[in-house]
Design a protein around this nucleic acid. Structure first.
Lengths: 145, 145
DNA sequence: AACATTGAAGATAATATTGTCCGTTAATTG
DNA sequence: CAATTAACGGACAATATTATCTTCAATGTT
């Protein structure tokens, strides 16, 4: 469903939110350690998110990645789109070049419902809310030993 | 959502059904030509489907791929699982090793709904029915020029 | 029996994705 | 202002996916 990069991005961004809620900036080393993703690759994935202003970053000592009020409207869908493109959300699911209502592929009308739920999953809760649930211990970002 | 291989497989199997409904076996050359997929790669993708008895094949002159009554219960979900594995339908969508009801990832409960619709899309109509819709001109397997 | 046809299987190649490493740039601290 | 820290950016490497090609095995035709 999601690329490896997108999975890492989702976990990383939620983790960044948990820490920003406690007023801590986090470095890529800490992120990789906490959510069990390869550090350098995770850092690489976060760069386009910074460029797209979906998260913030600051260099130097005590620097790192963070989010604030300006990022409250950002959804996981925005994250996925920045990392994987929007192929999951639009275009023909079978790859037909001119698939449309008038010229539908066999899945054209069915895929609408799947995408509706997908959209719902990735936009109905704010990332902040997801982070709060992690802080509350209701959900987890990594294997608990 | 689907790998390239799975997209090809879906189109190929529906095409095979359209032709079997008219009592024609089809070769990989014809399949690739009709649904606009690379011929050799398409043939390769069909092999595991034959092995899993999701479609039939026969060698030699006038041979090719086909389906019959014994394949009427096969669903697109079976096809996807044979080609891509069942990662789309089960396991943690974020890749957590021990994600569960007791230890849920942030998307654990949300992904259920998406998978329900996905399941519905890939199992509610038989492949035969999808092929009939193609034969009727209601849907298409390739770009119409 | 010889030959042509078509799927099966394996080797190989091209491309995309995943992942690492290292030098550069920006920010903070002393 | 020098040293340190951490993101940024580009090069590079490993692996997976996509795609091709060649040989082999099975089947039908002449």
């Amino acid at each position: 469903m999601f690329s490896q990069a997108a999975k890492y991005a989702i976990k990383a961004v939620i983790y960044i939110w948990t820490q920003s809620l406690e007023n801590r900036r986090v470095g890529s080393k800490e992120i990789g350690g906490k959510i069990k993703t390869p550090e350098a690759f995770t850092a690489k994935i976060l760069q386009p998110l910074v460029k797209a202003k979906l998260i913030g970053s600051i260099k130097g000592p005590n620097g790192g990645f963070f989010v604030n009020e300006s990022h409250e409207e950002v959804t996981l869908k925005d994250i996925i789109k920045a990392v994987d493109g929007d192929g999951l959300f639009s275009g023909c699911s079978l790859g037909l070049p001119n698939c449309s209502e008038k010229n539908p592929c066999p899945l054209h009308f069915e895929v609408v419902k799947v995408r509706k739920e997908l959209d719902n999953m990735l936009t109905s809760k704010s990332i902040k809310q997801l982070a709060i649930e992690v802080l509350n211990g209701e959900t987890r970002l990594a294997k608990v030993v």
